[in-house]
């Protein structure tokens, strides 16, 4: 009996291992492949004759003399002005994260401490807002922004991204502050501080785990956004993702496809590193709303 169970569980273990390895290949291989290919010339990465060229670098050796080349990166960053797009992304991401955390912590804290019915209504409204497809909101921005002459510049995009991000940040921080005991700030208020002071001196020191999670999600939203940045920024002010798309649009020009490949790698690498570093926080954030909801 025991041996039968043993065989059964070993079988299961083997199936399980095979399944996970297959999945890992499906999930990670495309990125590894693109990463390898970005150090080659176009004829190797988009090779009609043999896909093995991506590894061996047949044409790369002929054209540049080495198996690896940084040409795609050099051209994309300098000629393609990807550095400017990267700069814009850094500015947008930094301000979106800072402002949405500032607004979100205040709001989320207030929502978690209010016993009244209207707090609930605000949360429900936020849930509805969260579900709006971004492009429908963008179609609402364009006309007024043209009329007010604030289309195409970074500050407008930053504030729009902050607003679009607010519903999610509010829910996340609301459920986080719910786990911070009420007695903590009440004890401070008994000792005579105002609600603001209680927030500043008692809640702020203990809120960092929740804030880091919320900040990471704002960061991912701002960094990854395509819809808003592509439609609300003028061509010169484009951030990385719309810039990348513009390389695709002009693919008659031979070098541009490799620009896109190099910029995909350049744009994803920092994101992967951040995620690797903060993996725990991201997972706890995603599940915070889920287990309750």
């Amino acid at each position: 009996m025991a041996t039968l169970a043993d065989i059964k569980s070993r079988k299961l273990l083997i199936i399980n291992t095979i399944f996970i390895i297959t999945w890992l290949i499906i999930a990670a291989f495309p990125f590894i492949w693109t990463f390898l290919g970005s150090f080659k010339v176009r004829e190797d990465f988009f090779s009609r004759s043999d896909w093995w060229y991506v590894i061996s670098g047949f044409n790369t050796i002929i054209e540049t003399g080495g198996r690896y080349t940084l040409n795609a990166y050099k051209e994309a960053w300098i000629e393609g002005e990807f550095w400017y797009a990267a700069r814009n992304t850094v500015i947008v991401t930094f301000f979106v994260v800072t402002i949405s955390l500032f607004l979100g912590t205040l709001g989320g804290y207030a929502l978690s401490r209010s016993p009244y019915r209207y707090a609930f209504w605000i949360l429900i409204t936020a849930l509805v807002f969260r579900a709006m497809p971004h492009i429908t909101l963008v179609s609402g921005y364009l006309f007024p922004f043209f009329q007010l002459n604030i289309w195409g510049i970074l500050p407008t995009t930053i504030i729009v991204l902050v607003a679009i991000n607010q519903p999610f940040t509010l829910w996340l921080l609301y459920s986080f502050f719910k786990t911070v005991p009420k007695e903590l700030d009440e004890s401070g208020m008994i000792d005579g501080c105002s609600h603001f002071q209680a927030f500043r001196y008692i809640i702020m020191p203990v809120m960092w785990p929740g804030v880091i999670t919320a900040g990471l999600f704002s960061l991912m939203l701002a960094y990854n956004d395509f819809t808003v940045t592509a439609m609300l920024l003028s061509f010169e002010n484009h951030t990385m993702v719309p810039k990348l798309q513009s390389y695709l649009g002009t693919n008659q020009h031979e070098g541009n496809m490799m620009w896109a490949v190099a910029s995909v790698v350049s744009a994803t690498a920092p994101l992967f590193m951040i995620v690797m570093f903060f993996q725990k926080q991201i997972i706890s954030g995603l599940t915070a709303g889920a287990v309750k909801g």
Partner: peptide
């Protein structure tokens, strides 16, 4: 506490 975030959501 709610004013800033509400302004952002209402406006945009």
């Amino acid at each position: 506490f709610m004013l800033p975030t509400c302004i952002a959501m209402v406006l945009f």
